[in-house]
Design a binder for these strands. Structure first.
Lengths: 191, 191
DNA sequence: GTCTATACGGTGATAGAC
DNA sequence: GTCTATCACCGTATAGAC
């Protein structure tokens, strides 16, 4: 059922673009790739998204919002467990889809991105850094996080550590390396 | 002077390919880009390197060897200072050339890489992890590194943290963020 | 060693029929 | 909304003259 507002096809295109970009980056996917997955012709995609920049921008925005919703769903856990659940988003993506974080992929491609997509990347990491820092701050108050930690800086180490570990782990064909890095990062934050 | 063994042009092509790949990734540079920089036609590149895969492989191999030589030059420093000098390789690359580590860029592009290039990526990170772990182990013996640290795991956190921070820092247009992450990683390793 | 010329597939994008 | 047809590139790669 459901009335399907922004058109089912538009959503299908967005999902396909997201999966392809997480796998191969902005320069590694084409309208024809998306068309083949969705079951339409590449020309038809332009009806929903005028340009590749528009498609990538919409994809990045939807990803950022969905990621924020997922983070907001992490309640009722102490700080270390929250960090673990957050990191498990990355672990699951790599293990189940073989893909990277869309934010990280686009950051790597940043130089070649249209401005509007680049702006989404900046917004994505601002959100991530702020959210992780807030978790750490609460953890310090509860005693689960080292009291002498600079939370804003450690948040950046944590996020960049996970992003880098995703790429390196996939690159060296050792996906389980990501989990190792995640657990060690959490360990470093504990008292 | 100098007799110039592997042909000056071949070296110039390699250097151009390295800079372009560090900036835009494997799928973001072309034979025509290299040709324009070196001052020849793109067809002439094929005389030195038959295919793009061959060129990328040779570039990655030269990068890995040059990086190893640079690491071997870091002697006479204690462990924290060695880690700082190592991390400064990354900081300098980002600040002076605006480029990323070639290993990290290729890891991000790993899915789309020819096998021979992918193999170089694996070799690169094996070298990095082993070298950093050895520095940490020596540091533990000297007392400059936390004795309870799992050096093999922290080495991976350190390398992935720098790789991720390079991409994120450039992506959000805050290159100085890389230095912040580097210093914090060193701090976390100290007793 | 480098050139010109060219082959040939992939790419984003548009026009216009249905 | 989706299609076919087409465009104007750009990509790697090759053949053969110089």
């Amino acid at each position: 059922m459901s009335v399907a507002n922004p058109s089912d096809k538009a959503v299908a295109i967005l999902n396909s673009a997201r999966a392809l970009m997480m796998d191969r980056g902005y320069n590694g996917f084409s309208f024809r790739d998306v068309a083949a997955e969705v079951g339409i012709k590449s020309a038809s995609i332009h009806y929903h998204y005028a340009t590749k920049a528009d498609l990538a921008e919409a994809t990045a925005k939807a990803y950022r919002e969905a990621f924020s919703d997922a983070m907001d769903g992490l309640v009722g856990l102490d700080a270390p467990a929250t960090l673990r659940a957050y990191g498990t988003f990355f672990v699951t993506t790599l293990r189940d889809q073989g893909g990277l974080c869309l934010g990280g992929v686009l950051a790597a491609d940043a130089i070649t991105l249209p401005d509007q997509v680049r702006a989404e990347v900046i917004s994505f990491f601002d959100t991530q850094h702020d959210w992780v820092a807030a978790v750490l701050r609460k953890g310090q108050a509860e005693g689960g996080i080292r009291a002498d930690l600079d939370v804003d800086t450690f948040a950046k180490v944590f996020v960049s550590g996970l992003e880098g570990a995703m790429m390196v782990s996939r690159g060296i064909r050792q996906p389980q390396n990501l989990e190792t890095v995640l657990e060690h990062l959490i360990l470093l934050a504990r008292p």
